[in-house]
């Protein structure tokens, strides 16, 4: 065994170590998944920009899977198999509102999207918290965010498995999210 070979090995190991440390969240697949504990708290669910009085800083909840390509692709798979796509299609909307544009009726922060999926919304969005696990909902949150470019580009889907319906998420321009000025339909 030559020292040259040892040197190559050392360099390679170091390189692999650096790569593992720096680049792997995108590809990380946790076989022993600890379900994300970061379920939204009541203070995180404010959907109004208007807070009378001094106001308060709302703690943001990080989406646990925003930069994990595998989890985002799991979210995409769930989005289709749980029939989210039956209402929102591939982000353009139909029965439900579009998810690829900049308008958000109930908020675009991860905890707000989590709440929309888990608790449902009054104008037709079903409540999924008893049909999906917390982990699955977080995967969906990150996929939904990827539709308008709210998560890191590297973790978004680069291609589609089906008939070409739209530009893949990784190539969709990032939208600047805005709270919708359109109130939902009201039964009053």
């Amino acid at each position: 065994m030559s020292s040259r070979s040892n040197g190559w090995r050392a360099t390679c190991s170091a390189l692999i170590g650096i790569l593992l440390l720096s680049a792997c969240e995108r590809e990380n697949r946790r076989f022993q998944e600890n379900p994300p504990t970061a379920t939204p708290t009541s203070t995180a669910l404010i959907v109004s920009d208007l807070q009378p009085g001094p106001g308060m800083v709302i703690p943001k909840v990080e989406a646990p899977y925003d930069d994990n390509a595998w989890a985002v692709s799991e979210g995409k798979s769930l989005f289709n198999s749980m029939n989210c796509s039956g209402c929102h299609f591939q982000g353009g909307g139909g029965i439900g509102p579009p998810l690829m544009d900049e308008e958000w009726i109930y908020g675009y922060e991860p905890q707000q999207i989590f709440a929309s999926i888990a608790d449902g919304r009054p104008n037709g969005m079903p409540a999924w918290k008893y049909s999906l696990s917390t982990q699955q909902i977080w995967e969906l949150v990150s996929y939904v965010r990827s539709l308008s470019g709210l998560n890191p580009k590297g973790a978004r889907s680069g291609r589609d498995d089906h008939m070409m319906r739209k530009t893949p998420e990784a190539s969709t321009p990032n939208a600047v999210p805005k709270m919708s000025s359109t109130p939902p339909e009201d039964s009053a």
Binding site: F89, Q90, G91, G93, G94, P98, E103, T167
Partner: peptide
């Protein structure tokens, strides 16, 4: 419904 035409499968 204010849909997004970039998704050709919408509606």
């Amino acid at each position: 419904g204010g849909l997004d035409a970039r998704d050709s499968s919408a509606a």
